[in-house]
């Protein structure tokens, strides 16, 4: 395995560069995935059947908490990658841990939010609108959940193996993933919640 020391650690082998490019292309596909979900949501938004409308079920507080927590976690993972570039393993691990904790809080609030929807009669089966809403949010939430496990595995690996080209590469790619989820959330926040509450 040839290691190119002129590059940052995560880019330092050919395979690492392939992994990063491949992941960017994957994110392109993810943009289409969420784009399609948004298209579906916008089409079905007004088709509430006998069920509630967006304005009737959205609550601002949990959404603001979720937004705040996820945006912060995106910042902390950025700090984590910065620490990684400086070679400060412990700082990096701490930031990653904080990121995952924030992600966990996000997920907790989202579960609360889903339960709230259930209680006000907006279940998965209620209408086309609720199905589109819960599928869009659920897909994002599932991504976060998967990310929590993935991040945990990476923390364990960095802890055990140290900062190698491989672990640095994985951490960097994970950070791309996490930032991407944050970007998706910004769209969800603006075009689903804010638009729905107005």
């Amino acid at each position: 395995m040839k290691i190119d020391h002129s590059q940052p650690l995560e880019y330092s082998t050919h395979q690492n560069q392939l992994n990063i490019l491949g992941f960017w292309i994957f994110l392109g596909a993810e943009i289409m995935l969420f784009g399609t979900l948004f298209m579906g949501y916008f089409t079905l938004e007004g088709r509430t059947g006998a069920g509630p409308t967006p304005a009737q079920i959205f609550e601002i507080t949990p959404v603001l908490i979720e937004t705040f927590v996820l945006l912060t976690s995106s910042f902390t993972i950025g700090l984590g990658i910065h620490a990684m570039r400086l070679g400060r393993k412990n700082a990096m691990l701490s930031f990653f841990a904080i990121t995952l904790l924030l992600g966990l809080v996000f997920l907790g609030v989202e579960i609360y939010e889903f339960m709230h929807y259930y209680h006000v009669g907006a279940t998965y089966q209620t209408s086309a609108f609720t199905a589109a809403l819960l599928t869009t949010l659920g897909t994002h939430g599932a991504h976060v959940t998967l990310g929590l496990f993935w991040g945990l595995f990476i923390i364990l690996q960095v802890k055990k193996r140290g900062l190698t080209p491989q672990t640095a590469n994985k951490s960097f790619i994970f950070s791309l993933y996490w930032h991407f989820l944050d970007v998706v959330w910004i769209f969800i926040f603006s075009f689903i919640y804010l638009k729905g509450m107005m």
């Binding site: 916008f42 089409t43 938004e45 007004g46 088709r47 509430t48 059947g49 006998a50 409308t53």
Partner: peptide, 10 residues
């Protein structure tokens, strides 16, 4: 035009 009317269509 994405009719926001929630009339019973069924």
């Amino acid at each position: 035009e994405e009719g926001n009317d929630s009339e019973e269509e069924s």
